[in-house]
Deep mutational scan, measured.
Amino acid sequence: PEEVRRLVEELYRKGVSPEQVKKILKKQGIDEREIEKVLRRIG
Rank of each mutant, 00 (worst) to 15 (best):
P1A: 11
P1N: 12
P1F: 14
P1S: 14
P1H: 13
P1Y: 14
E2D: 13
E2V: 09
E2Q: 11
E3G: 09
E3H: 08
E3K: 09
E3D: 11
E3V: 12
E3C: 06
V4C: 04
V4P: 02
V4W: 13
V4I: 14
R5F: 15
R5S: 08
R5T: 12
R6W: 07
R6G: 05
R6V: 07
L7W: 07
L7S: 03
L7F: 07
L7G: 01
V8N: 00
V8F: 03
E9V: 14
E10V: 09
E10D: 10
L11K: 00
L11V: 01
L11I: 02
Y12L: 14
R13F: 12
R13A: 08
K14E: 06
K14S: 10
K14G: 07
K14Q: 10
G15Q: 04
G15H: 05
G15R: 05
V16L: 09
V16H: 13
V16G: 04
V16M: 12
S17N: 08
S17V: 07
S17H: 10
S17A: 09
P18W: 10
E19K: 10
E19Y: 11
E19F: 08
E19R: 13
E19C: 15
E19N: 11
E19S: 13
Q20R: 09
Q20F: 09
Q20L: 12
Q20A: 12
V21I: 15
V21E: 00
K22R: 15
K22I: 15
K22E: 04
K23Y: 13
K23M: 14
K23W: 09
K23Q: 13
K23S: 14
K23H: 13
I24R: 06
I24D: 03
I24W: 07
L25K: 00
L25N: 00
L25R: 00
K26S: 13
K27E: 12
Q28P: 01
Q28R: 14
Q28S: 09
G29K: 03
I30M: 11
I30Q: 02
I30F: 14
I30S: 01
I30H: 10
D31Q: 05
E32M: 05
E32I: 06
E32G: 05
E32L: 05
R33S: 10
R33A: 13
R33H: 12
E34S: 07
E34F: 05
I35W: 02
I35R: 00
I35N: 00
I35A: 02
I35S: 01
E36V: 04
E36M: 05
E36A: 03
K37T: 07
K37V: 06
V38P: 00
V38K: 01
V38C: 05
V38N: 06
L39H: 01
L39D: 01
L39K: 01
L39S: 02
R40P: 03
R40D: 15
R40S: 08
R41K: 13
R41S: 15
R41T: 15
R41A: 15
I42N: 03
I42R: 06
G43R: 14
